[in-house]
């Protein structure tokens, strides 16, 4: 994780009911710090604030560095790895990659995910990606608290947000100062962005 000096702080205020940004977060990874050796289940519950019932019902596919995870308690997450969460998905792909492995035989034979080895340091950084309904449902709380992502990721997310012409209806602050949404991209310095979104 970067020091505060290397972080661009972007605060977005938007009108109530405009939930689009939360959905658009889908696929754009953000960073989370967690204790070394944390299990997938503990990450979901303790770091993302999900309860067991929600996970069971709504998080149907979990990918760790792109490989499907079935055993969320036994699975330990590696330093610098990516955890992606998705709601139920259609088709043969959805069935093959669904948690629980009923159709796991449809995956490649040599593709079981590697469980993480415990690194020596105490805290690790994990990239989290929320997809589809999980982004829509979890996005508001996470974005209210603020999420950190690479400047590169933020800029491509921002490009998509602006494409919707939402720039007009957004109030944007960069490092506490109001900024024209259309000039924001030029003012973002490299490394990371701490993004928070508030609805009023």
């Amino acid at each position: 994780m970067e020091t505060t000096a290397e972080i661009n702080r972007v605060d977005i205020e938007m009108a109530p009911g405009s939930t689009g940004i939360f959905s658009m977060l889908s696929g754009y990874g953000f960073f989370i710090e967690a204790p070394a050796g944390i299990s997938v289940n503990a990450l979901l519950q303790k770091k993302l604030g999900l309860d067991a019932g929600y996970i069971e019902k709504h998080i149907q596919t979990i990918l760790h560095d792109g490989k499907p995870v079935d055993d969320i308690d036994g699975w330990k997450i590696k330093e610098d790895s990516t955890i992606a969460l998705s709601a139920a998905l259609p088709g043969l792909f959805g069935a093959a990659f669904r948690r629980g492995g009923k159709f796991a035989a449809l995956r490649p034979r040599e593709m079981p995910a590697e469980s993480g080895r415990h690194p020596e340091n105490d805290a690790i950084t994990i990239t989290v990606k929320l997809f589809n309904l999980s982004a829509r449902e979890l996005g508001p709380q996470l974005l209210q608290n603020g999420i950190q992502m690479s400047a590169e990721t933020f800029l491509s997310l921002w490009k998509n947000i602006l494409k919707l012409d939402r720039g007009k209806s957004l109030n944007v602050l960069l490092n506490g100062n109001k900024i024209d949404p259309h000039t924001l991209a030029e003012s973002i310095r490299p490394v990371n962005v701490l993004l928070s979104v508030l609805t009023h």
Binding site: G66, L89, P90, G91, F93, K129, F131, N132, R136
Partner: peptide, 14 residues
């Protein structure tokens, strides 16, 4: 909510 294109992100991630 998303149609079949809900698959793009996840198939890509996989």
């Amino acid at each position: 909510a998303y149609g079949t294109n809900v698959l793009t992100n996840v198939v890509n991630e996989a």
